[in-house]
């Protein structure tokens, strides 16, 4: 097993966005607990981010791409509406042709759903290795609260039984039909139920999934060394941790939102990768994603000794630190938000 991550190089500060809309940048930053977010370059999209993350994961795992039997890419910003991202990844890592592949969609939790599918195929013996990716280049409507957080990035996991770095002890999901956030066919930007996204949506699902998996495995918050939740802003995961009884220390390592924003399908997988970059033998991790619409996937993961022996050299931290700031006008161009011109998007 191995993992790999990718973040675009460009950043925009929350203050720079706030200035355009006549808002107080510092106050917005403080209330959302986010300083800056990643911005993809004009030639980057979910497919290119997925490929870079997948190549890093393969390099880390040190396996032959031809042994991968399934590729699932979870995203809400696939470059094509019809035409899979997963086949582009398969060709770019040279895993073709003897494999199955598909794209997943479930708002921000499509990446963890991909991990679960790979687990099932590996456990049943149908495939030797599966590649699960969560990646996004998400869009926020200009002037909307989402514009401060919606960012780009992704992470890829190679799931298998041999030479694992960490073992997924259990996974549990909690799913309901809750219209808190959506985007209809052909619409550029998503709509959301504003305050409705909190208690009945994010908190209900994240907390139910976390409680469900802990109860089933007879675990308490203090049994875990690290915890990571989906991070649509800085506040939500903090409050979820508090409600469930996790400390700031347990949450800290996987909290990437303040410096990269909300990478949607990439968020929980990236937070988990930041934890694996540091975690040692015997460490126990709780990871809980959240996807609007709505559902949460929870995982209990135990790190084994090979994680230290085979430390990932392309760390989340390196990608977070590799950055160049852009202003709002360049940001608009990079996001392809200009009307009347066909930008290469």
């Amino acid at each position: 097993m191995g993992y790999g991550v990718y973040l675009p190089k460009y950043r925009i500060k929350v203050g720079e966005i706030a200035k355009v809309w006549g808002m107080d940048g510092e106050r917005v930053s403080k209330s959302l607990i986010i300083n800056e977010k990643t911005v993809p370059s004009l030639d980057e999209d979910t497919a290119t981010i997925s490929v870079e993350a997948a190549r890093n994961a393969l390099e880390h795992a040190g396996i032959d791409a031809k042994d991968i039997g399934a590729i699932y890419v979870g995203s809400e910003s696939h470059p094509y509406v019809v035409k899979p991202t997963a086949t582009i990844v398969a060709a770019a890592i040279d895993a073709v042709e003897d494999l199955t592949a598909a794209d997943y969609e479930f708002a921000c939790k499509a990446g963890t759903a991909a991990i679960q599918s790979c687990m099932g195929l590996v456990d049943s013996g149908m495939i030797e290795y599966g590649l699960a990716i969560g990646a996004d280049t998400s869009q926020g409507r200009p002037g909307d609260a989402l514009e401060y957080t919606a960012s780009a990035g992704g992470a890829a996991y190679i799931i298998g039984k041999k030479d694992t770095l960490a073992d997924i002890l259990d996974t549990y999901s909690y799913t309901t039909d809750t219209p808190d956030f959506w985007r209809r066919e052909g619409m550029d930007f998503p709509s959301h139920g504003a305050r409705f996204t909190g208690r009945p949506a994010y908190f209900k699902h994240v907390i139910s999934a976390a409680e469900g998996i802990m109860e089933r495995n007879d675990k308490k918050p203090e049994d875990f060394d690290y915890v990571v939740f989906h991070q649509p802003n800085g506040k939500f995961p903090l409050n979820a941790a508090k409600t469930l009884g996790f400390s700031k220390e347990q949450l800290e390592t996987g909290m990437l939102i303040p410096n990269i924003g909300n990478t949607y399908s990439g968020a929980t997988p990236l937070g988990l990768a930041a934890i694996l970059d540091k975690a040692n033998k015997g460490d126990l991790i709780l990871a809980v994603s959240y996807g609007s619409g709505a559902g949460s996937d929870a995982f209990i993961i135990e790190v084994n000794g090979r994680n230290e022996e085979k430390r990932n050299m392309k760390k989340v931290r390196d990608y977070v630190d590799r950055k160049e700031y852009i202003d709002y006008s360049l940001y608009v161009k990079y996001k392809g938000k200009l009307k009347g011109v066909v930008l290469q998007k």
Binding site: S41, L42, D43, E44, D45, A47, T48, V51, E52, R55, P79, Y80, K83, I88, A92, V342, Q344, K345
Partner: peptide
């Protein structure tokens, strides 16, 4: 090498990816 979009055939055509 990195993997990037090289050119798209307008808004309706295919996206050509490749090395940069």
């Amino acid at each position: 090498k990195v993997f990037r979009k090289v050119i798209a055939d307008g808004s309706e055509g295919i996206i050509r990816y490749g090395y940069k």
